[in-house]
Amino acid sequence: MIKRKSEPYLYLIPALTIVILFVYYPFVKTIISSFFKVDIYGNLKEFVAFNNYLKLFSNQNFYRAFSQTLLHTLMYVPISIFIGLGLAFVSNQKSHFSRVYETLFTLSMAISVSIACQIFRMIYNPSYGLLAKTFGINIAWLTNKQYALFAVTFILIWIQIGFNYIYLSASLKNIPEDIIESANIDGAGFFRKLFHIYIPMISSSLFYLIVTSIITGLTMITPVLILTEGGPQRSTQTMIYNMYVYAYNNSNYAMAYTYGVVVFFLVAIIVAINFSFERKSVFYR
């Protein structure tokens, strides 16, 4: 580690300048506004202290959106990482894994969430969709409140798998061969190698994926906006979606700002918990 007083700050200046100007400066304004009444033109009216927060926390829909967002994240993070890791292991056994498969697995990286949603809208359609016509599965994926959230989560998992796969297989290939060889000589089985070599050696990559996926999971909105608009029967409303509705559909800026602040702190707490484990469980060479 280098110890020099001013040099590291120089490297941080570009990033910090932009982040302060375009994220924190407006966000501080948002926090301040959340303590006021705000009219439809965005002007602050009267100071209401924590009134907006009280309103938010006494709103049934907030808890509903919170638990649905959490459920989405609990499915999205582990499944997308697990599948990505599985594929990375398979492709690490170089022999029978062609470039064609590699490209197929990772192609989702090239597709934006909104295009993916349009594709899945067709796949899910119960009258002419791929699932209904080809496999005869006649389920109204996006209009049945039992399935809609899973259907939305699935799209995001599908998109994320490509990146997780390529990123984790990069990490796997970076593991020094001699370590694995010596384990092989010791006669270690796959699971022993998995938990004692592979996982620790790629823990920094896994940590990155877990943290960033948690953030994207908890701030999910795009497919809900495009495909379900929170429905049916509010079953796909997420926190950010509700915030969006307050801001743009209902011009209720005070509530939107309050929502934004609450989401920020909820995510920050969850991420901070993750980081508290970093030193203990993440291994950096």
Binding site: L16, F22, F27, I215, M243, Y248, A256
Partner: peptide, 12 residues
Amino acid sequence: LMGSMMVPGDVL
């Protein structure tokens, strides 16, 4: 810097 990822873009 990490926190900047958690600020919902729509309020900005």
